[in-house]
């Protein structure tokens, strides 16, 4: 589904190489985790895939179901089924969470040539999804992420994911800033969305999230490359021994 081939990326503003040849394939129905020390390029990978500005791809490719992602605008990638759950969800003052969600859902439907959801249909859907994520009606009315707690912000990301029904979900450090209970709630939300047609790329610094979202494949990223790939046991190895051993091993 998601194919990343020899991806090289540098910053637009300065001559600094961040990704130095990433190769990765995520199959439908699979959950891949990327772990790695700070500064290894994990978040950059998620930003480049979802179309954030400020990066320059110097080599390599990334496709979703055969479509070249890197040529598309961010919104085209979204309509094609790519979703990024942000590490730091952005606040948009004055814009109701519900308005934001509805605008997003309908923008994607329009881009795909589908009919827009009516207010009633949308409302029914969003209420059902919010309930399962324990998001109360008050939070839907508040401005997007403004004054949300860390847990609320991340649950809001998962709510957006649930409403947009993407094919390929990237979760960027979704566990950061969450206590155990909040993390469980978010993980449950993600697990509920697991299906045989949907791929996940879970970026995390710590193993603990992977106790709740069980990965099929674990990659270790360091210095702009994937240096080791293995099963769930690889995450435990990191947990027990830290990254130092693995990094020493590959160098």
């Amino acid at each position: 589904m998601l194919n990343i081939n020899n991806l090289h990326v540098q910053l637009e503003e300065e001559d600094k190489q961040i990704l130095k040849g990433v190769n990765l394939t995520v199959e439908p129905g699979k959950v891949h985790a990327i772990m790695g020390p700070n500064g290894s390029g994990k978040s950059t990978l998620s930003y480049v895939l979802s179309g954030k500005g400020g990066y320059e791809v110097t080599e390599g490719s990334a496709t979703l179901d055969g479509q070249d992602l890197l040529e598309q605008e961010a919104e085209e990638r979204a309509a094609a089924g790519l979703f990024l759950a942000f590490q730091y969800p952005v606040e948009i003052p004055g814009v109701g969470n519900m308005t934001f969600l509805r605008t997003a859902v309908n923008a994607q439907r329009k881009a795909r040539g589908e009919d827009e959801l009516s207010a009633a249909e949308f409302l029914k859907e969003v209420r059902a999804q919010a309930k399962s994520l324990k998001i109360d009606a008050e939070m839907l009315k508040r401005p997007v992420n403004v004054g949300f707690s860390g847990g609320e912000k991340k649950r809001n990301e998962i709510l957006q994911m649930a409403m947009l029904q993407p094919k390929m979900c990237i979760l960027d450090e979704t566990d950061s800033g969450l206590d155990v209970d909040a993390m469980k709630l978010v993980a449950e939300g993600v697990n509920a969305l697991r299906s045989e047609n949907r791929g996940f790329l879970v970026i995390t610094h710590y193993q603990r999230l992977l106790d709740h979202i069980k990965p099929d494949v674990v990659h270790i990223m360091a210095n702009g490359r994937i240096v080791k790939t293995g099963g769930p046991e690889l995450a435990l190895e990191v947990e027990n021994n830290g990254y130092a051993d693995i990094l020493a091993e590959v160098e």
Partner: peptide, 10 residues
């Protein structure tokens, strides 16, 4: 970018 990553155009 947040809005666009959710499917809205510029």
């Amino acid at each position: 970018f947040y809005c666009r990553s959710r499917g809205m155009d510029e």
